[in-house]
Each structure stands twice: as structure tokens, then as C-alpha cells.
Amino acid sequence: MKSRNLPLNKRGFNFEMIMWIFTRLSALAMYTLLLIGFIGALLMGAREQMNFADVMRWAFMPNPSHVINTNIPDIAPWTALFWQLVASALLLVATAHGVHGLVVIADDYIVTSNGRKIVRLISMLMMASTSLIGLYILWTF
């Protein structure tokens, strides 16, 4: 395969390019946060008290309400500040990743300049409201 040797400014290093790389890097970030949640759950006793699906549910969003129905004896370690921070980081990264993903999908079907502007406006509103509502839920459990 021929290597690409165009300089960055000719490759089109613009907002879309930044978001393209952001989508990949945020995926890696989410994998890291997910692993932290997974390992943390095992350290807090999930091996005896939770099944595989419950551990996955916790790892994908470490919010105490996701483990309250399992056999854990005490919810206290699961409500620690650390998990609120991990959950908030996951929420913000996932919201940005997801809303941009929806814009990419919409761009495949909405091709007019005005339509795309409307899509971007809606996506910004969606991203802001989802982040704020999510943070509210995570910090008022």
C-alpha cells in the first residue's frame, strides 16, 4: 500500500477531521473507563454477588442504581465519589461520541446546506441537554 505523504493542510485538517479522530480516540477512552468499571466491580466483590450481565451493565455506566437489584450486601462502596467521577467522564465522552455519530448518519441522508445547519443546531442542543440531565442524575442519586 502506497503511503500518504500529503501535508496536513492539503489533507483537509478541519473540524470534520478532528471529529473523525475524536471518534476513534473517544472509543479507546470509553474502553479504558469500561475496564476501570469492570475491574472495580470485581474488586468490590462482584464475583460472588453479581452475574456477568450485571457486571457489564455496571461497567457500561457505573451508576449505583444499576447494581441496587443485585446481591451486593452494601451499596456504600458503589456510591463512592470515584465512581461518580468515572460515570461523569463516561457520560460526557459517550455523549460527544454518540451525538457526533448521529450527525454523521444524518449527513448521509440530509445533503442540503440548510438542512445540515439545522442538524448541527439540533445536535448541539441535544448534546448540551443530554450532558446536563445526565450529570444531574449522576450527582443526585
Binding site: 454518540g98 448518519i105 440531565i133
Partner: peptide
């Protein structure tokens, strides 16, 4: 991938609203 992404976006948005 696309179906799953859209499904997750819809699921998580509604799940967050209903929890809120």
C-alpha cells in the same frame, strides 16, 4: 454498527429522560 449506534442513542436518551 449504524443500527446499534442509533439504537443506543435512542435507548439512552429515553432511559435518561425517564430516570430524570
Amino acid at each position: 454498527h449504524r443500527l446499534g449506534g442509533m439504537g443506543m442513542a435512542v435507548f439512552i436518551a429515553i432511559h435518561m429522560l425517564s430516570s430524570f
